[in-house]
């Protein structure tokens, strides 16, 4: 007698993309200069989700280093990170910890 028949046979398939939006503050003294911007972009590229980053009304592609640098995010700047895709939750969590850890500077 197996209990397999009694177990629900539901396979969870996430078909709907998820959208996650978080706020972060740039903490490191030098701000989001080229090296941390590159670290951000490198990490963003590990995810399938689209990543958008905004400072006020200025929104850029979080996977483009040239775009990220135009944020000119100095120490204390608040940014909004939006991820849209199947791994949006993990992407935002990892990006948040990168920013919170001052890009390991």
């Amino acid at each position: 007698m197996t209990n397999r028949r009694t177990m629900p046979r539901i396979r969870v398939v996430q078909t709907k993309p998820t959208q996650v939006k978080i706020n972060v503050t740039i903490l490191n003294e030098l701000g989001l200069h080229a090296r941390p911007a590159m670290a951000f972009v490198d990490l963003a590229h590990q995810f399938e989700s689209d990543i958008r980053v905004s400072k006020g009304a200025h929104q850029v592609d979080g996977k483009s280093i040239m775009h990220m640098i135009t944020l000119a995010a100095t120490q204390g700047t608040e940014l909004v990170i939006e991820a849209d895709g199947p791994d949006a939750l993990e992407a935002t969590a990892r990006l948040q910890s990168l920013v919170d850890n001052r890009f390991e500077e």
């Binding site: 030098l30 701000g31 200069h33 135009t70 120490q75």
Partner: peptide
């Protein structure tokens, strides 16, 4: 002057984009 540096980089990349 890290903030000035970031502003200059912004100016440069806004053009180069």
């Amino acid at each position: 002057k890290p903030d000035e540096h970031l502003q200059a980089m912004e100016t440069i990349f806004s053009a180069l984009q």
